[in-house]
Simulated scan of single mutants.
Amino acid sequence: MYRTILVDDEPIIKKSIAKLIEKKFSHFEIIGEAEDGQEALELTLNSDPDLIITDIRMPEMDGIELIREIHKLNKGTHIVVVSGYNEFDYAKQAIHYNAVDYLLKPVKPQELYLTMERVEEKLQNRDRYKPENRKWLWDCKIYSEEMVEYIWKGRIIDIKSYLTNVHNSLLNNDLDLPVLRQFYIDMLALIRNGLIEKIGDKPVLNRLNVKDIPDSEIVSFIINIFNEIIEFIQESRDWSKYSKVNSALKFIDNQYSDPELNLQVVSREIDMSPTYFSRQFKEEKGISFIQYLTQLRMEKAKDLLEDVTLKTYEVAEMVGYNDYPHFAKTFKKLYQVSPNSYRKLLNNL
């Protein structure tokens, strides 16, 4: 049963919502009612509800303040706002604190039913994705094994792309922030174990003993940790035979916008034959020179596409493509979406 609290200073509103829920959603149990935010907060602390349906304007503590306080608790409680005020600022604040929906009074049964279906789906996803479940353990294992290999080989571009995909996949499961944080904590612990097998229990790996994950910029937070570990691995391993490859990487990172940049140009810069350099590069990075250059240019293009003042053909030129159709085709092949469509997706976020 999903534990539910109703918060409103109008008894008739609470009674009508309770009847609608009891009529169609047997998995939800009304465990308490409150007349204001303060009373609701006390109920929440004592009963740990799965769902709170609350009004906005109430005495003592209003609905927005209640939502804010519940958000701070990080208990994964879902919030639905029911208000008689069709004011954008209220709705904006409610969404900021992850309210599932903002319904207007008088509440139409069909609207409430649709919202309750969304809440139920989120709660079911939460229950399926718990630390004790096999899917959780399996995903942690698969993701961590892949990350260990990327870190060991210093493939930071692949790490960023892979971790972003992992994060999006987790978000698609409607995981609450506390659950999402715990997943990453478990995954990082497995990555630490995998790296210990390769380099021993070095102090730098303690960076993976994370006790908390920030609310935002989670991917960047984790990548920064990985960067520190990669730097340590590169310094401690025998990198003498790879020194020229590292010089090549720096050269590529500085010259990727040059449309004339190719294997021959880079190998000449570091005084290696193209054939030998190509072999050494793939051995070190795990991908070919052209794959690395393409991925680097596409990642830079994604960043530039966030700047709406730049036209897409200008972005193409800035990352080394004079032929826009070729750029667009390459971008779509890598990300399954065209540059223009990617920009539209960014604007809709």
Results as ranks from 00 to 15, higher is better:
2 Y>R: 12
4 T>F: 12
11 P>A: 14
14 K>A: 12
21 I>W: 08
24 K>I: 02
25 F>W: 07
27 H>A: 14
30 I>R: 09
31 I>Y: 07
31 I>D: 05
36 D>K: 12
39 E>Q: 15
41 L>E: 03
41 L>Q: 02
42 E>V: 13
42 E>S: 14
45 L>Y: 07
52 I>F: 13
54 T>A: 09
56 I>R: 13
57 R>Q: 12
59 P>R: 05
59 P>F: 05
65 E>N: 14
68 R>C: 06
69 E>M: 13
70 I>H: 11
71 H>T: 08
74 N>G: 07
75 K>Y: 05
75 K>S: 07
76 G>H: 10
76 G>W: 11
77 T>D: 12
78 H>E: 15
85 Y>S: 08
86 N>H: 10
90 Y>M: 06
93 Q>M: 04
95 I>M: 15
95 I>V: 14
95 I>S: 11
99 A>S: 15
104 L>M: 11
106 P>I: 03
108 K>I: 09
108 K>R: 08
111 E>I: 03
111 E>C: 01
114 L>S: 14
143 Y>F: 14
143 Y>K: 12
150 Y>N: 08
160 K>F: 02
164 T>V: 04
165 N>D: 13
170 L>Q: 08
171 L>V: 08
174 D>G: 01
176 D>V: 13
177 L>E: 08
184 Y>D: 01
186 D>G: 09
191 I>L: 09
195 L>T: 02
202 K>G: 01
207 R>V: 01
214 P>Y: 04
223 I>W: 01
223 I>R: 03
223 I>H: 01
229 I>E: 04
232 F>A: 07
235 E>R: 15
235 E>C: 08
240 S>M: 05
241 K>V: 04
247 S>F: 01
249 L>Q: 04
249 L>I: 10
257 S>G: 05
260 E>Y: 10
266 V>T: 04
285 K>C: 04
288 S>R: 07
291 Q>E: 14
294 T>C: 05
299 E>N: 06
303 D>E: 13
309 T>R: 13
310 L>V: 00
314 E>T: 00
327 F>E: 07
327 F>W: 10
332 K>S: 13
333 K>P: 00
345 L>D: 11
346 L>G: 03
347 N>W: 05
348 N>A: 12
